Simulated scan of single mutants.
Amino acid sequence: MLEANNRQIAALSLSLLDLTDLGETTTAEAIDSLCDKAITPFGPTAAICIWPRFVAQARARLGAHHAVRIATVVNFPSGDLPVDAVVAETVQAVADGADEIDLVIPYRALMAGDEQAVVDMVTAVRAAAPHPVTLKTILETGELKDKALIRKASDLAIAHGADFIKTSTGKVAINATLTAADIMLNAIREHGGKVGFKPAGGVRTVADAQLYLKLAATILGQDWPMPSTFRFGASGLLTDILATLEGRESAAPQAQY
């Protein structure tokens, strides 16, 4: 991992990619295209990540047992919906064929000092999406800002059933950063290294991806990043991955501390 070349990093990143379309004007045609793009000449992406209303369509397009998993978002992007509404969203998404639920925690409540709101939301959604459904919790670290608060959000999510902790919705000014990643990966390590990590928003190049992969390998071990423990939430990253695997010029890194 730490000594891997660009093609190796690109191939690994492809296997870890949640190819994402959460645009406000997404169409059914765009979802079909996303499903098709997720199956590349170099292998499939780990998942697609889409709005709940498109899950059934994507399931029909990809089939019941395809290698590409279907992730969808709940309590997204605000994090402010009532627990019962989010549970209803989750139940419907799972019924429609979602393999993975990306839940925005009530991060504004946490910022106001209400840790119980996070506990209640994560616990309820975990119950509504039992294993083998994967539960990823979105902390919205760019809004939390404070390092201690990011660590608190990580600890609460892990303790109450999250399979992954994810940086961001991609809908705010500051999304994934290496600083937030460092805090979250250390929390995962201190909880035994069994929970996954997903940087989302702003990871656009193979060079960006390599920065996060190296950080994860340094904290949790060279063999730790795999689809069951590490994902990238991105829409544009696939373009640079394919350019690298095809031997075309890759872009410069953009990820920042």
Rank of each mutant, 00 (worst) to 15 (best):
residue 1 M to G: 07
residue 1 M to W: 06
residue 2 L to R: 01
residue 9 I to K: 02
residue 11 A to L: 14
residue 19 L to A: 04
residue 23 G to H: 11
residue 23 G to K: 14
residue 29 E to N: 10
residue 31 I to A: 07
residue 31 I to G: 08
residue 31 I to W: 10
residue 33 S to Y: 10
residue 35 C to V: 05
residue 36 D to K: 13
residue 43 G to P: 14
residue 47 A to R: 03
residue 48 I to F: 11
residue 50 I to T: 01
residue 50 I to K: 01
residue 53 R to Y: 02
residue 54 F to L: 11
residue 54 F to N: 09
residue 71 A to V: 08
residue 78 S to E: 06
residue 80 D to S: 15
residue 82 P to G: 02
residue 84 D to K: 09
residue 90 T to Q: 00
residue 91 V to S: 00
residue 96 D to A: 06
residue 96 D to W: 02
residue 100 E to C: 08
residue 102 D to V: 10
residue 104 V to K: 01
residue 104 V to P: 04
residue 106 P to C: 01
residue 107 Y to I: 05
residue 111 M to A: 07
residue 115 E to M: 12
residue 117 A to I: 06
residue 122 V to K: 09
residue 124 A to T: 05
residue 127 A to E: 10
residue 128 A to Y: 00
residue 128 A to E: 00
residue 131 H to I: 01
residue 131 H to C: 01
residue 131 H to K: 03
residue 132 P to N: 04
residue 133 V to L: 03
residue 135 L to H: 07
residue 140 E to L: 07
residue 142 G to K: 02
residue 142 G to A: 08
residue 147 K to M: 15
residue 147 K to H: 15
residue 148 A to P: 11
residue 150 I to W: 01
residue 151 R to V: 14
residue 152 K to M: 12
residue 157 A to D: 10
residue 157 A to I: 13
residue 159 A to V: 12
residue 160 H to R: 13
residue 162 A to N: 08
residue 166 K to Q: 07
residue 173 A to N: 04
residue 173 A to I: 12
residue 174 I to P: 10
residue 175 N to C: 09
residue 177 T to S: 02
residue 185 L to G: 03
residue 192 G to V: 06
residue 192 G to Y: 09
residue 194 K to N: 15
residue 194 K to I: 15
residue 194 K to E: 15
residue 198 K to L: 05
residue 199 P to V: 13
residue 199 P to N: 14
residue 201 G to S: 07
residue 204 R to G: 10
residue 206 V to Y: 00
residue 209 A to T: 10
residue 217 A to S: 12
residue 228 S to P: 15
residue 228 S to M: 15
residue 232 F to D: 03
residue 233 G to Y: 13
residue 240 D to M: 15
residue 241 I to C: 11
residue 243 A to V: 11
residue 245 L to R: 01
residue 256 Q to K: 12
